[in-house]
Design a protein around this nucleic acid. Structure first.
Lengths: 143, 143
DNA sequence: CTTTATGCAAACTATTTGCAACAAT
DNA sequence: ATTGTTGCAAATAGTTTGCATAAAG
């Protein structure tokens, strides 16, 4: 799966006439073996630990490339930190966000999606995407 | 209704030992007679037209006060602009956002809310609040 | 060789803060 | 008088960009 995603990125790079670089390899590798909702800063710090001379700008630019390649998606959970979440093909999910510890869980619910479509239809809206986030205390933090 | 909200704010101000000022009156008045999802910048520009010497910082600070007083709620729709929406007591609604013209509509759906609670319960989450936004083309922009 | 990528620092955007002058109580 | 408020400019946080140098094709 990590292999498959690397392939996707390699193809994307090739097809756009871009170049394979050491940095992109490192960043992709680190991204793929990280938490599914990593903030840019966290990824940057994680990278710096092993590769002290990698630049912040490169991380930003490379994450944008991942997004264009369809490997990642930019997300904001309102804490002022942009996160990139891992994207699998065609998959979609929503989020539970713990306001205390920051833990993020994913969920899917067919019925909710269906109801959303109904709402949109009744208003003449054509939905492209949506976001649904439930904020509160995770089971761990409730105690 | 505008009157009622002004009363709420006046009470809030009094009860906190804060002061009534010309600026706060002007900003509240302008806020109350604006679009329900106004960006800070839009409000600022609107204000500047009549009151050229009002400061950006004052607008920021005052809007935060409105939020604390329960008159407004801070919202982000991902375009880098913070908006403040009007809040009525106990009311909650979600949003349809047009990605082309920026139009924002509100909707409510009991069933979706109920399903959200179920999801949260099944994960042991205690929901404090949620956000649901449907992005796409509004009826006008579909043509 | 030619073109793209990198790292750094400077630029930018949205927002917040310090502070002296000012207004409300 | 006292305390909170304003407007400005400077500070901050997150992100983007210009550019000379370096690396990939």
């Amino acid at each position: 799966m990590k292999r498959a995603k690397k392939k996707i990125f390699a193809d994307f790079i090739a097809q756009r006439g871009l170049k394979t670089t050491k940095q992109r390899d490192i960043i992709l590798d680190s991204f793929l073996s990280s938490d599914r909702h990593l903030s840019i800063e966290d990824l940057y710090l994680k990278l710096r630990a092993k590769h002290p001379n990698i630049g912040y700008a490169t991380v930003y630019r490379t994450l944008k490339l991942f997004a264009e390649a369809g490997l990642a998606r930019e997300m904001q959970f309102g804490d002022g930190q942009t996160r990139y979440e891992h994207v699998g093909e065609g998959e979609h999910h929503d989020h539970l966000v713990c306001t205390r510890c920051g833990h993020i869980e994913e969920f899917e619910n067919e019925t909710i999606e269906k109801l959303q479509d109904e709402v949109a239809n009744s208003r003449g809206f054509l939905i492209e995407r949506h976001r649904l986030e439930l904020y509160g205390l995770c089971s761990g933090c409730r105690k």
